[in-house]
Design a protein around this nucleic acid. Structure first.
Length: 576
DNA sequence: GCCGTTTTCGGCCCGACTGTTTTCAGTCG
């Protein structure tokens, strides 16, 4: 039973308690504990065995005993009883947008509805509207919501790169309205999460109604979900849910902060405000005694007022950033200007579309001191992987091109396949001759957790290996991460002094933020690489930097933030 | 059910929008 499963169990328990109409704070306690458990660096089982299960935030005596019960028996008594009482389909019903615990319970008690299919049928047969406070519009809304839910296989989450494009497109259109002064992107998109659920926008306007009207009447809007005096939501092509809030300039800071979130971060800030005698909302601070509102025109004003250093949006997840800010221990987050090179680049020698010279030129234009050409090894036949003989020619070619360029150093490398048994695709003799060796899993993704972990750890134990690329293999919309024990990978990377990659391809973003932060905290060095297959891909580096920033990564944690001299020293390259 | 720079008891973030009602409960973020 791992942390994710235990957290899921607590989440389901919370949903059941909601349905049963239990005390909302008790319900919230389960949700909070679940979230806290998901964010743990170590497995609960390990903590339990070492007697270190105390001091998990949000877990008190009662929930602690339930965790122990789960670890020992696979479940806990109260949960087993609860799932017998509340049919499984009911939880699904509460996942339909617009339906919460109260309605789900009413449908169950009055109409015996226990599943989404039954709900859909009841709505079509107009049985919902006969219930108190229910009507025709609600039936239509339910049917629409169910259809959207069923169409939406990825649970409504979109890769940040796609969401960013849509957001910029909408921003441009909104800017053309005479009633809209300015447009800001907020929400998880501004926090740079790897995937975003919906797109949150703020517009500054003196005429809110006209601004809202312009928004809901944009040509591409497929459906208007709600439209009020200061807030509206629409559906946009590609299953994008867009939320808009209108604000007057004097409240912009508060609104930006509020709408950027995260929810947990905001709750923490509000608790902090309460302890100082103020209520905090999207319009500013209200003095508890006088009732006087202090508006915040700039986001910085809010953090200032609470005695905090400014918090970059990437950190606003209530994962310790507020405490760090209070004690002056915020990280100096990595920035684009810190990146000195790219260590994962493919050329025409394997499956890239640009020559080594073209890549070198593009890297110079981006101000890099070095790049590593890391074409595929021969097992990756589909990517035109190089034989050992070809790899030797490849090295010669790089040496020749290095003579041509004064402004950049090209490192000879490989992205060497880790075979199913953990052996590498090239012999040690040839690996030794390369400047840099990146290893990666490309096939045999279905291996079980134990084998996959052993396979990767074996690769990390090879003395010639430098970096593990895209460590979990996930690709958005294509496949989930393969099953692997990340803790063991991180430990092996630390013990063998290997780097782990944050792959900046917007379809990978692998390591993700939580794994990357975990690695950093264990003292593992990271490499923020683009896995470039075409010159334009170099610019994906910003996505990788976003992930790193969300992981609290500082320049000193990053291999390719090192100067050429430093990196040559790390890689054991004598000639520079 | 958790938690404490007021507290071991009594709090627990806060407001907008909808649909159904004539004043508000439910849902959402």
């Amino acid at each position: 039973m791992d942390n994710v499963q235990i957290a899921e169990m607590f989440n389901r328990m919370a949903r059941i308690l909601e349905f049963k109409g239990e005390n909302q704070f008790k319900t919230r306690a389960y949700t909070n504990a679940a979230r806290s458990i998901k964010g743990l660096d170590e497995e609960l089982m390990g903590l339990y065995r070492n007697g270190k299960i105390d001091s998990i935030p949000g877990v008190g005596e009662v929930l602690k005993s339930k965790i122990v019960e789960i670890l020992e028996t696979g479940s806990f008594d109260a949960y087993e009883k609860a799932i017998k009482e509340v049919p499984h389909g009911i939880i699904d019903i509460m996942d339909v947008p617009g339906i919460g615990p109260k309605m789900a319970r009413l449908f169950y008690e009055k109409l015996g509805i226990k599943s989404i299919d039954e709900l859909s049928k009841a709505a079509r047969e107009h049985r919902i509207r006969r219930l108190p406070r229910m009507g025709e519009k609600l039936e239509e809304k339910i049917l629409r919501s169910i259809i959207r839910l069923q169409q939406d296989k990825d649970y409504g989450r979109h890769p940040i790169a796609l969401a960013g494009e849509i957001a910029r497109e909408i921003r441009q259109e909104l800017c053309s309205s005479p009633h809209i002064e300015k447009v800001f992107i907020a929400g998880s998109l501004r926090r740079k999460k790897d995937t975003v659920g919906d797109i949150d926008l703020i517009v500054v306007s003196d005429e809110p109604e006209k601004a809202i009207n312009f928004f809901i009447n944009m040509e591409k809007v497929e459906e208007i979900l709600e439209a009020g005096a200061s807030k509206a939501s629409v559906m946009y092509p590609g299953n994008f849910h867009i939320d808009l809030r209108v604000v007057e300039r004097e409240h912009l800071g508060s609104m930006l902060q509020h709408f950027t979130g995260s929810k947990e971060h905001n709750i923490h800030l509000r608790r902090l405000a309460i302890s100082k005698g103020y209520r905090l909302n999207e319009y500013g601070f209200t003095n508890e005694n006088s009732g006087i509102l202090k508006p915040c025109g700039r986001e910085e004003d809010i953090y200032d007022f609470l005695g905090l250093d400014y918090l970059p949006p990437e950190l606003r997840e209530d994962r310790g950033e507020i405490e760090a800010s209070l004690t002056g221990n915020l990280p100096r987050l990595i920035e684009k200007k810190d990146i000195k090179g790219d260590l994962h680049v493919h050329s025409t020698w394997s499956d890239g579309i640009n020559t080594i010279e073209e890549l070198a030129q593009a890297a110079i234009q981006r101000g890099y001191e070095y790049i590593a050409i890391t074409d595929h090894s021969h097992s990756t036949g589909i990517a035109n992987g190089l034989s050992e003989k070809q790899l030797i020619e490849h090295m010669g070619e790089i040496e020749r091109i290095n003579d041509e360029f004064d402004d950049i150093r090209i490192l000879s490398g490989t992205e060497c396949d880790i075979r199913a048994d953990g052996k590498l695709d090239y012999s040690n003799d040839i690996l030794e001759r390369l400047d840099i060796v990146i290893v990666a899993v490309h096939a045999g993704l279905e291996q079980d957790r134990t084998r996959m972990t052993r396979r990767i750890v074996a690769a990390l134990e090879n003395e010639h290996v430098d970096i593990l690329a895209h460590p979990t293999g996930r690709k958005f919309g294509k496949r989930p991460a393969y099953d692997v024990e990340m803790e063991k990978i991180i430990t092996a990377a630390k013990e063998n002094e290997k780097g782990l990659e944050i792959n900046s391809s917007p379809w990978r973003l692998d390591l993700n933020d939580t794994n990357a932060r975990n690695a950093k905290e264990h003292g593992v060095m990271l490499a923020i690489n683009t896995d470039t297959h075409a010159i334009d891909h170099f610019d994906n580096i910003s996505f990788g930097i976003d992930v790193a920033r969300r992981a609290w990564v500082e320049p000193d944690d990053v291999i390719n933030a090192m100067s050429l001299k430093q990196i040559c020293s790390r890689l054991g390259i004598s000639r520079q």
